[in-house]
């Protein structure tokens, strides 16, 4: 109907297969180019960066190529006396990096190398009067942090420690919008990343009945553009990370089959760099570890590369077998 659509076009020459070994090389070599400007600039989120790389390598079945001993030592040394983890040694603790650290240690089955009680104390101390969570002791309220809190505690099998779980749930539910989605705080616009966090939160706490699954599912599948890629909000460009957040949310509410998975697969594959390995946000852009994890995890959820990529858990973005080992099974509709 002549409606202008913000989208990208996939070139006929775009990659159509997974460059498995290129990605393995990309992730292993990423940590060796320390003089890279980008690497220095991302030090403040190093712990999450490590999680992205480690989770991706495990999904590819290549975790043995990473230096387990050193990674665990580094992670452990980022824990503060208060129990929280910083992004790097000496950096202030934050809930985002605490979850990343726990995810890394969970993947390596090394949770016994830290003081778990202290972590629980740190995380539970971040809950506010109204049930919401802040990300650090001075910080802002954001539904991302509600998710980080319960995800961390769940991996530690200490979900029971949340001071007021009912209030925590009600806070997240109060961020639900008229279109079925969720935002960062009550009344904030629906956004795929926040939806992932809120749906993930409700899954971890076994409260998915609060979701209007048909309405939200429709909104989520409206995110698919003619290129096959998914965007984060209406009228935004498609992106591999939003593709993951939308896809994972759809999986959790059991509506993943509502999108065109063939087209989405083609979009994700087109975001690979056929020379360096790794995935970019969209075709032709620079690759990075963040989009590389979400590209691989997205392909895993779509299930059509099961010979080379392990099944991923949609809530934790970690290999399913890790959660089975720990005994954590978040709710799926």
């Amino acid at each position: 109907m002549g409606t202008p659509i913000k989208d990208v076009t996939l070139k006929p020459t775009a990659p159509k297969e997974v460059f498995f070994y290129k990605h393995v090389t990309y992730i292993t070599s990423y940590s060796s180019k320390k003089d890279d400007y980008e690497y220095v600039m991302t030090e403040y989120l190093r712990m999450s960066g490590m999680y992205w790389g480690i989770a991706a390598m495990d999904l590819l079945g290549q975790l043995n190529r990473m230096n387990k001993q050193k990674i665990i030592e580094f992670t452990v040394s980022c824990q503060h006396e208060c129990g929280g983890f910083g992004a790097s040694i000496g950096h202030d603790p934050h809930l985002l990096y605490t979850l990343s650290a726990i995810q890394i240690l969970a993947i390596y089955d090394a949770l016994d190398s830290i003081d778990v009680d202290k972590v629980v104390e740190y995380v539970t101390g971040l809950q506010q009067e109204d049930g919401s969570f802040v990300g650090d002791k001075w910080g802002e309220v954001d539904t991302r942090f509600s998710f980080c809190a319960v995800a961390t505690l769940s991996l530690l099998k200490r979900l029971d420690a949340v001071p007021d779980i009912e209030k925590a749930v009600q806070y997240v539910v109060s961020c639900m919008n008229f279109d079925g989605g969720f935002g960062v705080r009550p009344g904030s616009e629906s956004h795929s990343g926040q939806i992932y966090c809120c749906v993930g939160f409700l899954s971890v706490t076994n409260n998915l009945h609060y979701v209007n699954a048909d309405l939200l599912g429709w909104w989520l599948c409206e995110r698919q553009l003619p290129s096959g890629g998914l965007n984060g909000r209406p009228e935004k460009l498609p992106d591999v990370c939003y593709s993951w957040w939308v896809l994972a949310s759809l999986k959790i509410i059991n509506r993943l089959h509502w999108i065109d998975s063939k087209k989405l697969t083609a979009f994700i594959l087109a975001c690979q760099d056929d020379e360096t390995g790794g995935f970019a946000d969209r075709p032709g852009d620079m690759v990075d570890p963040f989009h590389t994890l979400f590209g691989i995890a997205g392909l895993s959820l779509l299930g059509n590369h099961s010979d080379s990529i392990k099944p991923v858990n949609p809530v934790f973005c970690m290999p399913e077998n890790i959660l089975t080992r720990i005994g954590v099974a978040p709710q799926i509709l």
């Binding site: 940590s31 220095v40 490590m50 580094f74 040394s77 040694i89």
Partner: peptide, 9 residues
């Protein structure tokens, strides 16, 4: 750290 995973320049 004692055994840096990554030595950052």
């Amino acid at each position: 750290g004692p055994n840096p995973v990554v030595r950052i320049a």
